[in-house]
Each structure stands twice: as C-alpha cells, then as structure tokens.
C-alpha cells in the first residue's frame, strides 16, 4: 500500500519520464542540427580562448616592443599573431579586444532584454490604450536613425564603456519589445491565463509567473541573434574611433588599426577580422538552429 505522498511522488516521476517538454524536444532537435552544434562548439572555444588565452602568452596587451614594430607572426618570439604598429602583441590584443566585444554584446543584450521584455509584456498584457501608447512610442523611436544618435552620444560624452552599453542597449530593445508584445497578445487568450484571472491572481503575478516563462523560447532565440548585432554596432563605433579607449581595445578598433597598415602588415587586419567574423557567424548559426529547434510548428 502506498501513502498518498509516495503515490504523488510516483506520479511526478512518471510524468517527468513520459512527458517531453518543449525544451526537451528542442534539445533533441538541436542535437541533430550539426551546423548549430558546430557553431556552439566553436563559440565555446572562442569564449575560452578570450578568457584564458592571454595566460598562454608571455606578453601583455599594452606593452610596446619598440624593436619589433609590425613584426609578422612568429612562434619564436611568441608573437603568435605578430605585432601592431607600435610593437604590441596582437595575439593578446585580439583576445583582449574579444573580451571587450563579447562583454559589450552580452551586457547590452541584457539591458535590451530587461527593457524589451518588461515593455512588451506589459503592453501586450494590459492592452487597450496603454498598449496603443506604448507601441506608438516604440514606433516613433524605431523610425529614428539611431546609429546617428548613438554616434552623437559618443561624441558628446566621450568614449565611455558604460555609455556604450546603455546607448546600444537602449536602442536594440525595440525589436525585443515588439516580438514579446506579439507573443504576449496570443498568450493572453490562452485558458491558463484566463483561469489565473478567474482565480483573482494579480496582473503582475500573472505576467511574471505565466507570461514571462512562456516567452523564454522566443527570447532565447532573440538573444543569440541580438548579441552579434550588438557586437557589430560596437565594432562599427570603435572602427570610427568612437568606441573603447586606448590602450583597451575591441575587435572593431583592431580591425580599424589593422586596415591602416594592411599593405605591409596584413596580419593586423586578418586575425581580429577572422575572430570577429567567426563569432558573428557562429552566433547567427546557433540562433537559427535554436529558432528551428523551438519552432512548435515543426515537431
């Protein structure tokens, strides 16, 4: 004879074993997508390199070797990627720049995520006039040439990392808000939300407990596609000389420096450009794979 409690736990167990959640199915599908998996592995390698790689080199990212200006890659001097126009080691600089680019990508996406999900979920859930006004604001902001305003912002307040985060994050949330709102509108019609409302659950609890968890899939896809966008924007700013400040660097700034000396020192352009392109490539591929994997139409 089993007690009610153990029957409950048996039941739980059975349900967990037999039920295939959206996430479980998505994971199965993602595992079969070789391109996306490869992209994930390459990304992991790039992440590890960027974090731990500088330890592998005896050089520091800011130290100029005056006797080795624009030296080609060499194992002997341990300048694996060569040196730049004032003799700094490009291997360490590329990885150091990667830290900056990835950090900007992740933090600004986080900012966009917070604002976008909150904005979209509230607009979609409350609906009516509030929705109208909130989405009107998004429309107006959407039509602004934001890149130009961000450039102005950087010029006005000087090169400041924190500002880059805020500036990019505050522009990239618009897409997020639109997507989340659309999704929330359709979730709003679902029975479980109606049930929660009938039980008298407060609106913000419904949003937090029922709406937001159901948005996770689309948000996950969107995040993997937003990070490369942000990295690109930061690189664009750094390329114009408005991004990070010396001796700190980012992939965009390195590409800019490399492009100036590319005729006699093409390695300065090649390595940062390759890292930048590989990262963007893999993030896009992974995002596509996630989108396919989480697509409920495609079981």
């Amino acid at each position: 004879m089993s007690t009610p409690a153990s029957a409950m736990s048996n039941f739980d167990h059975a349900a967990a074993a037999s039920g295939r959640s959206l996430w479980h199915l998505a994971w199965l599908r993602l595992k079969r997508n070789r391109a996306a998996l490869t992209a994930a592995v390459v990304l992991a390698v790039i992440f590890l390199l960027v974090i731990f790689g500088p330890i592998l080199s005896p050089h520091s990212f800011a130290h100029p070797y005056w006797e080795q200006i624009s030296a080609p890659p060499s194992l002997e001097t341990r300048h694996f990627f060569g040196t730049d126009s004032i003799g700094r080691d490009l291997f360490v600089r590329t990885l150091h720049g990667g830290r900056m680019s990835l950090m900007v990508g992740l933090v600004a996406t986080g900012v966009a995520l917070l604002i976008g999900v909150a904005w979209g979920a509230i607009a979609g859930f409350v609906g009516g006039r509030v929705d109208n006004i909130m989405m009107r604001v998004v429309d107006i902001l959407y039509a602004l040439p934001f890149m130009f305003l961000v450039i102005l912002l950087m010029v006005v307040f000087g090169r400041n990392i924190l500002l880059i985060f805020v500036a990019i994050g505050s522009y990239i949330w618009l897409d997020m808000a639109r997507i989340v709102r659309g999704q929330t509108l359709s979730l709003r019609q679902k029975e479980f939300v109606e049930a929660a409302e009938a039980l008298g659950v407060r609106a913000w609890v419904i949003i937090w407990r029922h709406i937001v968890p159901n948005l996770l899939g689309i948000v996950a896809v969107y995040v993997t596609l937003t990070v490369p966008k942000v990295i690109l924007v930061e690189s664009f700013l750094s390329f114009l000389g408005l991004g990070v400040q010396e001796p700190n660097t980012s992939w965009g700034a390195l590409v800019n420096e490399g492009a100036q000396d590319m005729e006699f020192a093409p390695w300065g352009l090649f390595f940062p450009a390759a890292f930048l392109a590989a990262t963007l490539f893999c993030l896009n591929f992974l995002g596509d794979g996630l989108r396919d994997a989480l697509d409920p139409k495609d079981r």
Binding site: P228, N256, G258, M262, E263, A273, L276, A277, F281, N284
Partner: peptide, 22 residues
C-alpha cells in the same frame, strides 16, 4: 550568404581594397 552576413562592411572594404586595388 551566412559568411556575407558575418563580415561587416568595414571589414570587407579594406579586404576588397587590399586585393583588387593593392
């Protein structure tokens, strides 16, 4: 196409110059 999307135009431009002009 995926490669094309991943290479920003400020990276592509110097590479094009390097090959086709230099």
């Amino acid at each position: 196409a995926m490669t094309g999307i991943a290479i920003p135009n400020f990276v592509l431009a110097p590479i094009l110059i390097l090959f086709f002009a230099v």
